[in-house]
Design a protein around this nucleic acid. Sequence first.
DNA 1: GCCGTTATACCGGATTTCAGGTATTTAACA
DNA 2: TGTTAAATACCTGAAATCCGGTATAACGGC
Lengths: 212, 212
Amino acid sequence: MIKLIIIDDHPLVADGIATMLKDESYLQIVASAKTGRQGLAILSEYPDCEVILLDINLPDTDGLQLCEQIRQLYPNLKIIGLTSVNEAGIISQMIRRGANGYLLKDMEKEELLHAINRVLDGHVYLSKGANEKILQQLRELDINPHQVPMLTRREKEILSLLDQGLSSQEIASRLSLSIHTIDTHRKNMLQKLNVHNTPALLKAAGKLGLLG
Amino acid sequence: MIKLIIIDDHPLVADGIATMLKDESYLQIVASAKTGRQGLAILSEYPDCEVILLDINLPDTDGLQLCEQIRQLYPNLKIIGLTSVNEAGIISQMIRRGANGYLLKDMEKEELLHAINRVLDGHVYLSKGANEKILQQLRELDINPHQVPMLTRREKEILSLLDQGLSSQEIASRLSLSIHTIDTHRKNMLQKLNVHNTPALLKAAGKLGLLG
DNA sequence: GCCGTTATACCGGATTTCAGGTATTTAACA
DNA sequence: TGTTAAATACCTGAAATCCGGTATAACGGC
């Protein structure tokens, strides 16, 4: 008997998944939570749980952070992320943060069962079509799929401030740095993401999941 | 007996709503569709349908456009939008395009029933908390809630090109206009939305639903 | 026919960004 | 301990944006 936990704030989704799985006698949903906090509490109650279905768009916590947190606390737990959007950025971020799989909420019963079995066997399961979607988005940005550009900590920090509408000068003041430094970082990011102005930089970064 | 139609690509959601309504004898779900195309077909089959629950994040069509289209075809039909995100832009756009109501997918049964009754009575029903969320977002942008700035057709066109990462010069070439004209439009938009650079303009416009 | 709005175009000047560099210090790491 | 990556800072010059104007033709509504 394999124990499952669902963390999703939408009762519709939680109920729907329960319905999908009720005929599978080898699977058992032991508990479900509506918030990140609640989810962590439940996890500690069921240490023998093997699979968790984790909604990424949670109300209280950032689902991606929560994913990372759970991975650290329970290294052997299989985490399957649930989202309603199919975007390269979110998918790659989730895998990077320790998820074993990724499902869109419009999945069919068969796909859900298949995903659970795959991750239990140690594979990474990506939602039907997710692979193609990722590659297509990377192509649109003219980026080599084999080396998605990584931004450094400082670059991300500056990117986020740019995203808040600040100018180089304002960021420099905020971080007590020279404006030259900010400009250099911005320039490097433009080059990494292959764009030529700040709006395009922010948009591309968003798509790749380098923001937020 | 009031007839309902559901357009939502997530079987979970469609099933969940059906479950919520199954005890209400005065409501009847006559059909459901998974795509925009399919939805229009079904609507033409049931001209006496009174309420439609419409997912905004559809796979094939833009849900907002579809909403507008349905409103034109069936002026008396009550349209309730369904989304999983609670953002001022999307909400205001939906209402602008003819929706009678707006529900988050994490609603409870009571809220769903209440919303249906309200729109049948001719009211506009906004999801619990949607109002506060809208006002808060407008406050963040320092915009008077009583006069959300409208952009002209031309301004929107230029905004969309800016969003694609084009410079003023590139837009001018694309539209066969003087760069001065583009700059003037951009300047006017900056003023209308109360921001001081293009990234912030794009972000604010996105939040207000003036983009896309 | 008048009036407001939209779209168009231009000016000047200050500021910022963009695109090439170079260079030093710090941190990580094998 | 050497090597690499990251973070810092500066230079120059071209290009673009931002901000204050003004102005005119076109269009629509009342």
